[in-house]
Design a protein around this nucleic acid. Structure first.
Lengths: 333, 333
DNA sequence: CTGTTAGCGCCTTCAC
DNA sequence: GTGAAGGCGCTAACAG
């Protein structure tokens, strides 16, 4: 293995000079620099990152905790990694299994400088537990969190739900169904706020709360069918749940299935294949922002975050879209 | 930050003794060991992995290259990471974008000891290029590769296709459709071998070769519809492509769609939602084996690989299954 | 502008 | 069974 010492010998300079060339810090004579660069390629020098990181006590590595619950993982992670790579950071993946103890171990990794920053897809601990760790390094999450110390590129679900409900009211709907997630997440709380507001204004609702792991939401359809009076439209919190809802409905009662309109969240390939009208939360930009937040904190810069561009993909499952209710959306048919 | 020196001072011993306790190497008096252990917890010592890895020039890190083409990424990666974690390894994700140059950079990471082993989801370089790197550390891939030096937990597609074709022949089918992947992969070559063998025995076929990125295979349906005589069964190389095929078919010609049977590979949630009969390649076990291969090589042990348990999920899209053609499969209805 | 020097935290001979 | 010493490869004062 060649080291800077070999380069130095070859170029007839000292190690420090080589180091200066390598790190682009301090003054180096143009000619010396050229000599060094020549020597570098001649001896085939490759920096030893292990040594460099040790010396700098920095890892240029971001931890990324997954927890097995997210269907859009592939898309998100890919974007996150690509952005990280473009800034010369590496991403290490950990699996928390939504276990608070495991999650704490990873938080400790941050404390003990084994990673520079941490992204938590969905947290297992209360944010009060997590927040103190942010003094050891930047933390971001996909979970919506009301904290100035932990970043989240969330889209406020209040407005998502409010827009849909406004649209439905304009359509004359007085009775609406919802399939919601049981997770006590801020997103679901916001969704509920939006729904309650409409309930207070006279909207009748049916709500089914879905345990996250429960058969992709199969039972929501069964529950729906037991209703004596059924809403004509159901808004479902995720594509794959909406998919399963429709599948079950169709299996159990084709007529009802044909009368039921569905709107979902995610706009993944599932909603595309099943012709489900779906809202796209712009995962790519979210992933970008999550990384850039971490990067900014690590490097004391402030690269601008990108604006999230919501999208409404209109498909057969629900077509009565009033663009005025979705001013910020790109509407795609 | 506390170091072994702090521990040594506290325990009234030397750094070396602390190190011996930490690494469990060499002789340490029981009482001394206890003293040291007490000191460790008293000063709240946490080993500096940066230093340790540097010293040992090992990373306990496995590189994992993705390339943006795989829909089952989430499932695979999660399993791989969990296995790695259970053996105290970390996984760093890189994105190659199927770019040979980028891939080579990651191969170099192995050469220069910045990762201990490497997993390549789907390789961009020829395996002759990759193979030499295996002397720097174990390499595994999801791509099927005919090499003793690079491991792949592949399932031989020859037998997958042969079994299906045998089943279809038993059903009396004399004309079969295929949607295949354009990737010049060993898997597709094997599939072709199996198909050709049946063609030689008189089977009539229609084949559509799908570019990987092309609209999820939308055009396969258009091409299918142009056929004057259409096969009754189409075997499609991936769930999402099968999904798109059926969707397009249904859109363009409902009658034909109803007459066309489909079998796919992957058994993901897509085939479940769309009621497509699908073969499950047991991704979990594949991921397990991929990691264990790397682990075995790194640690000069030979933990047994697990047997891949293929599954055939029978759904509405194709029901005439003859279990005798699938002796090794678990058949699930 | 460049070289000398010291040291990051850890592990591993080598004496004792 | 334990301690002293050296060094992994690199960077950053500090001199000059």
């Amino acid at each position: 293995m060649t080291t800077i010492f070999d380069v130095a010998k070859k170029a007839g300079v000292s190690k420090s000079t080589v180091s200066r060339v390598l790190t682009n810090k301090g003054y180096v004579n143009k000619k010396t620099r050229q000599k060094v660069e020549k020597a570098i390629s001649e001896v085939g020098y490759i920096p030893n990152y292990l040594a460099r990181n040790f010396r700098n006590s920095q890892t240029r590595t971001i931890g990324f905790i997954i927890n097995g619950s997210i269907k859009l993982l592939g898309e998100f992670i890919e974007k996150f990694i690509k952005v990280a790579e473009s800034f010369a950071y590496e991403v290490v993946i950990y699996s928390s299994d939504s276990d608070p103890v495991k999650e704490k171990q990873y938080l400790d990794l941050l404390k003990y400088k084994q990673i520079d920053g941490l992204f938590i897809l969905t947290r297992a601990n209360d944010w009060q537990v997590i927040e103190p760790y942010s003094k050891y390094g930047p933390i971001a999450t996909w979970h919506r969190v009301e904290s100035t110390k932990i970043y989240s590129a969330y889209v406020d679900h209040y407005y998502i739900y409010a827009a849909i409900l406004q649209n439905l009211r304009k359509n004359g709907h007085k009775y609406v169904g919802f399939v919601l997630n049981s997770a006590r997440s801020q997103n679901m709380l916001s969704a509920n706020d939006a729904i309650k507001k409409q309930e207070a204004m006279g909207l009748k609702t049916w709500k089914y709360i879905c345990a996250t792991q429960e058969n992709y939401g199969e039972s929501s359809a069964q529950s729906f069918l037991k209703l004596s009076e059924k809403p004509k439209v159901v808004f479902i919190y995720a594509d794959y749940v909406a998919g399963m809802f429709m599948k079950k409905l169709r299996e159990l009662d084709e007529t009802v299935a044909n009368q039921t309109q569905v709107i979902s969240l995610d706009n993944s390939i599932i909603s595309e294949l099943l012709d489900i009208t779906s809202i796209d939360l712009d995962i790519d930009t979210q992933a970008y922002n999550e990384f850039v937040y971490i990067y900014n904190n690590l490097n004391a810069v402030s690269l601008p975050l990108k604006k999230i561009r919501l999208k409404l993909a209109v498909r057969k499952s629900f077509t009565q879209i009033d663009p005025e209710c979705f001013p910020e959306y790109r509407i795609i048919k």
